[in-house]
Design a protein around this nucleic acid. Structure first.
Lengths: 79, 79
DNA sequence: GAGAATTTGTACGTATGTATG
DNA sequence: ACATACATACGTACAAATTCT
């Protein structure tokens, strides 16, 4: 049960929680490339916009970083 | 410090700026053959597509011209 | 002349960034 | 929240033309 569209919790928060769990559990190793936004959207049954909003949350937490036109990776932004 | 993939400035514009500097500074003399697209891509750490897009910009500015299977030269296209 | 290597030209697939409805 | 479209970017593959062996 990925997400619950009837919940009071915003979809992007639910998606962020799912991805956060996958990262902190080690399911997604550091520096590993995440599935694409489109792929995650289809898998979780939400729109790409929602995935992107969730990724913004994780980015603010330093859990992931994104390179334009490349992908989103696990870990803090290098540099 | 060639290019910054995290910058808001598109990579191809950064590459164009680098090559433009090499040309206008005289580092690359007029009619001189530029390094191949593949070589430039590897040297600058970008894709060949990005180099080609940058070369299109310089071509539009009349700074370089290209001959298929030969290479890209400094200067306006002869003829 | 034949063949291999090199270089540009083109095409496709996939990814993120941005804008619009 | 979602869908769509375009710009930017990377990788791969192959075609075409030139150059080297």
């Amino acid at each position: 049960m990925p997400v619950d569209p009837y919940s009071d919790v915003p979809l992007f928060e639910q998606v962020a929680a799912i991805l956060r769990e996958r990262i902190t559990s080690g399911e997604l190793a550091r520096l590993e490339l995440l599935p694409s936004e489109t792929h995650l959207a289809q898998e979780l049954g939400v729109g790409r916009d929602t995935v992107r909003t969730a990724l913004t949350v994780l980015r603010d937490e330093g859990l992931v970083f994104t390179i334009k036109a490349r992908g989103t990776f696990v870990g803090p932004r290098p540099g």
